[in-house]
Simulated scan of single mutants.
Amino acid sequence: MKSIVVYCGSSPGTNQTYKEVARELGEKMASRSIRLIYGGGNLGLMGTVADSVILNGGQVTGVIPNFLAALEVAHQTLTELHFVETMHERKFKMVQFAKGVVALPGGYGTLDELFEILAWRQLKLYDGPIAVLNTNGFYDLLLQQLDRMVEDGFLKPENRALLIVAETVDEVLEKIEEYWQEII
């Protein structure tokens, strides 16, 4: 496992716990020599996780569309920063670099990225593990909705099982590592 994409909010949220978990994820990724791949921003949880990886001696690759970089939200101290034209290019380039995906709390953008990569996984366009870090029960209602989709016949149980759920940073990193050990 060399790199993980992290999807998360460009806002810090209202609960300090989310920022603390983003910081912890960054620290533990750096300590395990896991490169962070993310959206390249310096705001919110995105900036927190990137700063934490950097402060702990880790490597960070950002991918940001030019229109967002022009708004001065691009992080300036990353290991590398790639500029793309569209959000679609950004999402594609991010997962090209990654051996796993973790979603922290976030808004529409986080959910967009999470569901697109799940659809890609279902269609076998991406083969890595995909997880949500369910901090403070943030994803509980979403997980209930996914179960409802299975119950009502819109989502196959094996596709529902593509989403790994973890409650702690250690658990999410261990589950991603276990995924690759089972494949090999």
Results as ranks from 00 to 15, higher is better:
E80G: 06
H75F: 15
M87D: 12
A98R: 02
A74K: 09
A70E: 08
R121W: 06
M87F: 05
T79H: 09
V95A: 05
W120M: 08
L133D: 02
L68E: 04
L118T: 07
A131S: 05
T61L: 11
P105K: 04
A131V: 03
T77M: 14
H88W: 09
N134R: 01
H82E: 09
A103S: 13
D112H: 15
E89L: 02
E116S: 13
G58V: 02
P65H: 06
V132S: 13
E116I: 10
V95H: 01
G107Q: 08
T61S: 10
V84L: 14
G58R: 04
F92D: 04
I64R: 13
Q59Y: 12
K91A: 11
V63F: 11
K99V: 00
L78Y: 10
V101K: 03
D127Y: 06
G58K: 03
T110Y: 15
V63T: 03
G62A: 08
I64T: 01
D127W: 05
L123Y: 10
L68I: 04
R121N: 08
K91H: 12
M87Y: 09
L81V: 09
L118E: 11
A103K: 05
K124A: 10
E113G: 07
T79G: 14
I117C: 07
Y126I: 00
K99L: 00
Y108N: 08
G109N: 12
Q96C: 04
G107M: 10
H88T: 11
Q96E: 01
E85Y: 07
T77Y: 06
Y108R: 10
M87E: 15
I64Q: 05
N66Q: 11
F97K: 00
E72S: 13
T110A: 09
E116Y: 11
V84W: 08
V101H: 02
V73R: 11
E72G: 09
A98C: 00
V102F: 07
L118W: 10
N134P: 01
A69W: 06
L111M: 14
L114I: 12
P105I: 14
Q76S: 14
Q76L: 06
K91L: 12
L71F: 05
E72T: 07
L114N: 15
V63W: 08
F115I: 14
V60N: 02
G100P: 00
A119I: 11
F97M: 01
L118C: 09
V73A: 07
P65M: 13
E80A: 04
V102L: 06
A74H: 12
L71S: 08
K124E: 05
V95T: 03
L125Y: 06
R90D: 06
E72V: 15
H88P: 00
A103W: 09
F97Q: 01
A103E: 06
E89S: 09
V73P: 12
Q59I: 06
F92E: 15
L81T: 06
E72F: 15
L118A: 13
N134A: 12
A131W: 06
H75G: 15
A98I: 00
A70T: 07
L68V: 04
Y108T: 12
D112V: 12
Q76G: 14
E113N: 13
P129F: 13
K91F: 07
T135A: 10
T79S: 10
K91N: 08
A69N: 10
V84A: 07
G58F: 05
M94R: 03
L111Q: 15
L68H: 05
T79P: 14
T61K: 12
P65I: 10
